[in-house]
């Protein structure tokens, strides 16, 4: 377990989850006043196991770990994709469909998920559904300006899916997943860069970095919280809310998620909801915390008589 030094732990200082990458030392100091109510399950641990097994080609082992992640964080696109791709690699196309569909539903821009979902549908003889993914990829290709970073990946995905559709359900060759995961060692620099981008107001770029962090770390509440924050700043309130809820499902006392979700509620005009979040922070932060200060300030500024 890694509990110090990680820059990810800076936000995690607010989290009450003992995560493998960013460890929140809750409980003391300026941290949580109350003992941290640790989540009984940390999905990032199984994600790491699953990702390592996946990268090593041990797909059955990967699927076993990733199933547990998906059960805990059903909307996580990365875990769903890796689970689906693990089934696909084992030739279990029927089982691959649902997680790949989930990955696509929650991250429509995930090229690998659309490609592999299309391949799976082609193998299952569902040409219409395979074609739907092909069309989606082609649309992404059209929207991808000349020289856009995904151009080559999109062209390759389309070619592979076209071949799979042409081969149909008679194809017998195994489908080897084509997905290179960032190493866990890359996580801190990615995360620090993402937070720096957020501080600079470059939210789209930050989201791209945070997505990369999700591939490296799995559904980490710190990363999910900042994805919520960046989406909120871009006005995507529903997406932001989903990220905050996911973060809090994993780490119910995550200070950052509680604060930012409270701010979102305030932006939506839900003063009572924001005040409930502040009360929650005050309960958690027995020795005070920046998150409570900030949310209190927001409430006082937006509703001076209600602070």
């Amino acid at each position: 377990m890694r509990y110090y030094r990680s820059s990810l732990s800076l936000l995690a200082a607010c989290a009450a989850l003992a995560a493998p990458v960013a460890l929140a030392a809750g409980g003391g100091g300026g941290g949580g006043g109350a003992p941290p109510s640790q989540s009984s399950y940390d999905p990032t641990i199984d994600y790491k196991k699953g990702a390592e097994a996946f990268a090593a080609g041990r797909y059955a082992e990967a699927a076993k770990a990733l199933k547990r992640v998906v059960a805990a964080v059903p909307r996580n696109p990365q875990a769903n994709y890796l689970l689906g791709a693990s089934h696909l690699a084992q030739g279990d196309y029927s089982r691959a469909v649902k997680p790949l569909e989930t990955a696509v539903r929650h991250d429509g821009k995930m090229i690998e998920a659309r490609r592999d979902l299309g391949v799976v549908q082609a193998r299952l003889g569902k040409a219409d559904k395979a074609d739907r993914e092909l069309q989606a990829l082609r649309m992404m290709q059209e929207q991808c300006a000349v020289g856009c970073s995904d151009a080559a990946k999109l062209a390759d995905a389309i070619a592979r899916l076209e071949a799979a559709i042409a081969a149909g359900p008679q194809a017998r060759a195994a489908v080897a997943p084509d997905m290179r995961l960032p190493s866990a060692a890359a996580l801190d620099p990615i995360y620090v860069a993402a937070v720096a981008l957020i501080n600079e107001g470059r939210y789209e770029a930050a989201i791209a970095k945070l997505d990369a962090a999700l591939w490296a770390a799995g559904p980490h509440p710190d990363v999910l919280t900042y994805l919520g924050f960046a989406n909120r700043k871009l006005g995507r309130h529903d997406a932001a809310e989903a990220y905050y809820r996911d973060a809090l499902a994993i780490a119910p006392t995550h200070r950052g998620a509680i604060e930012y979700y409270g701010e979102l509620k305030l932006e939506r005009g839900d003063l009572a909801g924001a005040r409930a979040h502040l009360a929650r922070l005050d309960a958690i932060c027995g020795f005070g915390c920046n998150e409570a200060d900030e949310l209190r300030r927001w409430i006082e500024e937006k509703a001076p008589s209600a602070g």
Partner: peptide, 12 residues
């Protein structure tokens, strides 16, 4: 396996 409860270890 328990995390240390010391704030200072976050940057040590």
């Amino acid at each position: 396996a328990a995390p240390p409860p010391f704030e200072t270890l976050r940057w040590t």
